[in-house]
């Protein structure tokens, strides 16, 4: 059984984001990047399946979305956690696309690789699109289960049983292999890379694949192929300073109620 995890590198959540001059992207130089937290669940789940079922290998796959980013670092983290191999899709033609072109490139790469199960995070925490995994499934004609928080793999009958948290209950979905899942918090607790794991990761293969390797027309991908045109990004409005209502408790509560009603207009 072969498993492939697709991961994205995103700005660390505490990053202070600055917009580019034209206001359609963020400045990436100098930002701290980390692996998308939902993708960590996907990596951990793949490693657990491998450990549990003795799967053959786990490959981590990522795409460089911008020249200033180094997804190699996130891929090395996957290798340090225990993945066997990593592939980075890197080509100027891939850069500046949207979720659709990202899915196109990933799908093209995945057609070159054998796999039984594909794992994605349910969404990336930077643009919160949540579309790439599902689009890859569509492009590859695979069954997919989204937002999975429990997974069983049956190698005998070659199927998965995936649990999804839904309003008021749990939905249990069965799908044949090969298939694709997107992972939700609660699926597992991602492990920390061990020091020996980090040392071993240096010796593991990290391949860089460009456009020629996967054979795609430059007009179909990157900026040229994008279906979504970002018109403008805006920072949320700065939060106004808080107010402290002083005085004795009874009067203060009355004043608070008055302000909530008359000024904030929330009650």
């Amino acid at each position: 059984m072969k498993l492939i995890v697709c991961i994205k590198q995103v700005p660390a959540t505490e990053s202070k984001l600055v917009l580019t001059r034209n206001g359609t992207d963020i400045e990436r130089a100098g930002l701290n990047f980390v692996m998308n937290p939902y993708d960590e669940f996907a990596v951990e789940e793949a490693l657990r399946i491998k450990e549990r079922l003795g799967a053959e290998d786990v490959t981590a796959l990522s795409l460089r979305p911008h020249a200033a980013q180094k997804p190699e670092e996130a891929l090395r983290t996957c290798l340090a956690m225990g993945a066997d191999k990593a592939i980075l899709l890197s080509d100027p033609a891939f850069e500046g696309g949207d979720s659709y072109t990202t899915a196109l490139v990933l799908a093209a790469a995945l057609r070159c690789l054998p796999f039984d199960l594909l794992l994605f995070g349910k969404q990336a925490v930077d643009d919160d699109g949540g579309a790439v995994g599902i689009q890859v499934a569509e492009l590859l004609g695979l069954p997919h289960v989204a937002v999975v928080n429990k997974l069983e793999v049956d190698t005998q009958s070659r199927c998965i049983v995936a649990h999804r948290q839904i309003e008021g209950g749990v939905e249990v979905v069965e799908a044949p292999l090969p298939s694709l899942i997107t992972c939700q918090k609660g699926l597992n607790e991602p492990r920390y890379p061990s020091l020996p794991g980090i040392m071993k990761a240096k010796q593991k293969p990290l391949e860089i694949w460009n456009r020629d390797r996967i054979g795609l027309e430059p007009t179909a991908i990157g900026v040229a192929g994008a279906k979504v045109n970002v018109v403008r990004l805006e920072s949320p409005p700065a939060r106004p300073a808080g107010r402290i209502i002083s005085g004795d408790a009874v009067a203060a509560v009355q004043e608070l109620v008055r302000l909530l009603h008359e000024e904030a207009k929330v009650i």
């Binding site: 597992n188 607790e189 991602p190 492990r191 920390y192 061990s194 020091l195 020996p196």
Partner: peptide, 9 residues
């Protein structure tokens, strides 16, 4: 220890 406990080296 949580589920992902990793003892120091």
């Amino acid at each position: 220890r949580k589920a992902n406990y990793q003892p120091g080296t």
